[in-house]
Design a protein around this nucleic acid. Structure first.
Length: 276
DNA sequence: CCCTAGTCGTCAT
DNA sequence: CGACTAGGG
């Protein structure tokens, strides 16, 4: 989904942490994030179809850092690729970038080509497969999620298998995760989001809000699954839900009252919100 | 103040 | 993916 501005608006629910505060605990890792960053550093080799282990080594280095601080890593990879419209367009865009990169590369413009190679990175199951091979050798826990890693990580935390999550994706907050480490660097420093601190958020009051209402606020503010309602972000979404927790009421009355331009073209959104 | 859409960085030397 | 920001409402 990717909720625009969510992390910014929830800054009071976050604080700097060092990974060592999770010593002895198991942390779930959003595999896609590290795969993508690792691939970023060897985009040329990937685009040229050359064999490279650099993205594997990148992740192994991160894992070693965690183990140095006695963290037990549990890597979660994405399973079935989404077959949404946006996904195929993203892939098409990626291919175009690779082609442009190859064109520049063949002209000898190596540096200029790299920018396009980096934009054209597309994480395929092969990447995860190569990493998994090494994780097996090192006896590091991992799982390939049936669908999205997000839901799997949320489940693992709820069931107590992991005590926190390492990612860069704010969607984990929407999925109800309690402890999430963002912006983890090589030294083990990061920002910890703690769900218990949601009441300290200053942008708007979330006191007395259930995870369910919070989720609806995020969906209402716009996500990739739906064509979002023009002019409604997190703040206005919060305002509407504060006034009435009945989404159907908001959809049928307030949206149209506040935004007359919204009508039948957003029936799709209405259906999803009301069923959610 | 709020929202949108576009740009840039992610690695690494 | 997020951070940042110019520009419109």
């Amino acid at each position: 989904m990717g909720i625009t501005g969510l992390l910014t608006v929830l800054k009071e629910a976050q604080e700097p942490v060092h990974i060592s505060s999770f010593k002895g605990q198991t942390l779930g890792i959003d595999g896609y994030v590290w795969l993508h960053k690792g691939a970023f550093g060897c985009s040329q080799e990937i685009a040229l179809g050359q064999d490279t282990r650099r993205y594997v080594n990148y992740i192994l280095k991160k894992i070693e850092m965690l183990r140095h601080f006695q963290i037990v890593p549990f890597v979660v990879f994405d399973g079935g690729s989404l077959t949404s419209k946006e996904e195929t367009e993203m892939e098409r865009e990626a291919k175009k970038n690779i082609q442009e990169g190859l064109r520049l590369f063949n002209m000898g413009l190596k540096k200029e080509a790299q920018t396009y190679f980096q934009r054209g990175i597309n994480i395929t199951p092969k990447f995860a497969k190569d990493v998994i091979e090494e994780l097996k050798k090192k006896n590091i826990q991992y799982v390939v999620a049936p669908y999205e890693a997000d839901a799997q990580l949320a489940y693992l935390e709820r069931e107590g298998t992991i005590q926190g999550i390492i990612t860069e994706d704010s969607d984990l907050i929407v999925y109800g995760c309690k402890k999430i480490i963002f912006k983890l660097d090589d030294a083990g420093n990061g920002m910890l989001f703690d769900r218990e601190r949601l009441g300290q958020v200053r942008s708007f009051s979330l006191r007395g809000w259930t995870d369910e209402t919070f989720r609806k606020m995020c969906i209402l503010s716009g996500c990739d699954y739906l064509s979002s309602v023009h002019g409604v972000g997190l703040k206005r979404s919060h305002k509407y839900l504060q006034r009435s927790r009945d989404i159907k009421q908001i959809a049928e009355n307030q949206w149209i009252a506040f935004h007359p331009q919204i009508d039948s073209e957003n029936d799709e959104i209405r259906r999803v919100i009301c069923s959610g």
